[in-house]
Amino acid sequence: MDLLDWHRDRLSARRLSVLVKHLPRDSALNRELHGEGADWSVTDHLLAAAVDHLAAANWMFACVNSDEGDQPEAPTPVPRPEYREGDDGETDGGEPDAPETAAGPRPPDASNGRPALSPSQLAHFFG
């Protein structure tokens, strides 16, 4: 397909828009717009989240069942692709923007730079 056909009025703007929107995930345009994130599908993100949650659950179990001085180190999350500012409400690292509370944005946790969770949020997560 020749893109000059759009300037020659042989290709409509609507058809060009449809062709661009339905480019494969590994296309040069998607790689330019989304960087490494173009290679990650929803399944890849869900699998990384499942691995992170399993590692956190195992770590919590080990912390509860170990002596005070023999605490294991917290697990490191699976590396995610870098996202550029403005990609689907996410910033670098693929993490959604931190939610704000009435007092403003939550301060990051000192151990991993992520927002600190409140006790009510932890209770809601674990049911």
Score class of each variant (00 low, 15 high):
Ser27Gly: 03
Ala28Asn: 01
Leu29Met: 02
Leu29Gln: 05
Asn30Asp: 06
Asn30Lys: 08
Arg31Ile: 00
Glu32Ser: 11
Glu32Arg: 10
Glu32Asn: 06
Glu32Trp: 10
Leu33Ala: 04
Leu33Lys: 12
His34Gly: 00
His34Arg: 13
His34Trp: 13
His34Thr: 02
Glu36Ser: 09
Glu36Thr: 00
Gly37Met: 01
Gly37Ser: 02
Ala38Pro: 07
Ala38Tyr: 15
Ala38Asp: 12
Ala38Leu: 04
Asp39Met: 08
Ser41Met: 02
Val42Ala: 10
Val42Met: 13
Thr43His: 13
Thr43Gly: 02
Thr43Ala: 04
Thr43Ser: 08
Asp44Asn: 05
Asp44Ala: 05
Leu46Phe: 08
Leu46Arg: 11
Leu46Trp: 12
Leu47Tyr: 12
Leu47Phe: 15
Ala48Asn: 05
Ala48Asp: 08
Ala49Val: 06
Ala50Phe: 12
Ala50His: 14
Asp52Cys: 03
Asp52Ala: 04
Asp52Asn: 06
Asp52Glu: 09
His53Ala: 07
His53Gly: 01
His53Leu: 03
Leu54Arg: 14
Leu54Glu: 15
Ala55His: 10
Ala55Glu: 15
Ala56Cys: 14
Ala56Lys: 15
Ala57Arg: 11
Asn58Glu: 12
Asn58Thr: 15
Trp59Asp: 05
Met60Asp: 04
Met60Trp: 12
Phe61Ser: 05
Phe61Asp: 02
Phe61Lys: 06
Cys63Asn: 03
Val64Tyr: 09
Ser66Lys: 07
Ser66Asp: 09
Ser66Phe: 08
Glu68Leu: 13
Glu68Thr: 15
Glu68Ser: 15
Gly69Pro: 08
Asp70Pro: 01
Gln71Asp: 10
Gln71Asn: 04
Pro72Cys: 10
Pro72Phe: 05
Glu73Asn: 13
Ala74Met: 13
Ala74Leu: 11
Ala74Gln: 06
Ala74Pro: 07
Pro75Trp: 00
Pro75Gln: 03
Thr76Glu: 15
Thr76Gln: 15
Pro77Arg: 01
Pro77His: 00
Val78Cys: 02
Val78Ala: 00
Pro79Phe: 10
Pro79Thr: 11
Pro79Leu: 07
Pro79Asn: 03
Arg80Lys: 14
Arg80Gln: 05
Pro81Cys: 02
Pro81Phe: 15
Tyr83Arg: 04
Arg84Ser: 10
Arg84His: 05
Arg84Gln: 07
Gly89Trp: 04
Gly89Leu: 12
Thr91Met: 13
Thr91Phe: 10
Thr91Asn: 13
Thr91Gln: 14
Asp92Ser: 13
Gly94Ile: 00
Gly94Gln: 04
Glu95His: 02
Asp97Asn: 05
Asp97His: 01
Ala98Tyr: 06
Ala98His: 04
Pro99Ser: 01
Pro99Trp: 03
Pro99Ile: 00
